[in-house]
Design a protein around this nucleic acid. Sequence first.
DNA 1: TATAATGTTTGAAC
DNA 2: AGTTCAAACATTAT
Length: 242
Amino acid sequence: MPEGPSVVILKEAVQQFKKRKIISVIGNSKISQERLLNRKITDFKSWGKHFLICFREFNVRIHFLMWGSYTVNETKDRPPRLGLKFKNGEINFYSCSIKIIEGDLNRIYDFTADVMSDIWDPSKAKEKLYANPERQVCDALMEQDVFAGVGNIIKNEVLYRIHVHPESLIKGIPDNKINELIDEARNYSFDFLRWKKKFELRKHWLAHRQKICGRCNIPFMRKQTGTKSRRSFYCANCQVLY
DNA sequence: TATAATGTTTGAAC
DNA sequence: AGTTCAAACATTAT
């Protein structure tokens, strides 16, 4: 369930529990369950891939890592890591990482770095990119401090869209391409959101897990790239190595 | 059935 | 002391 747009979908799915009191807490997470019991949720927020349940004096951070999932008003056939019940329904979180964050979220998170945020700031992203000119673009795009919410699917699709080879160094990429990179990181994320809501995300993949380049009609490269060593799918012909 | 994969943190090893 | 790297976490589609 990982990338940023999926967390936005979750946030929308739980709006019915905003301002509601938790009447039961279950789960095998290490966090204190009694801390949540009888507390009212003030808001749900997200920062990149982080889902945040806000209370008056603290927050619960949920990270789904690679295989985490959730259900709303349903259960799976195994105990949740955290399950919250309300008078009007329930949310269950499975195989995720859960942490309490004390105090004000703005002290921890820079929401202008979240590609899905209303206050996303592309100029700050650009500064952060140029602060590490030797970095490969495939690593830079996945850097959560720069592009919070971007994961491997978005990385592959963005680089294909803008015809840039994943192993290009930031310092070699022309300035107007850097602008395109930043714009598409956000654009594609919103396309991802729209398609995922219609359960047709995969249908629109042009690079991720694809075998043939639709533009050149030749086989895609598939390689672990960058220091993060994540899979890149790219066309060695039409994606330029800068 | 075995494998690989939308991710991150931790702590050991160098 | 700073960097690198494997392990751990745990699910599901292919």
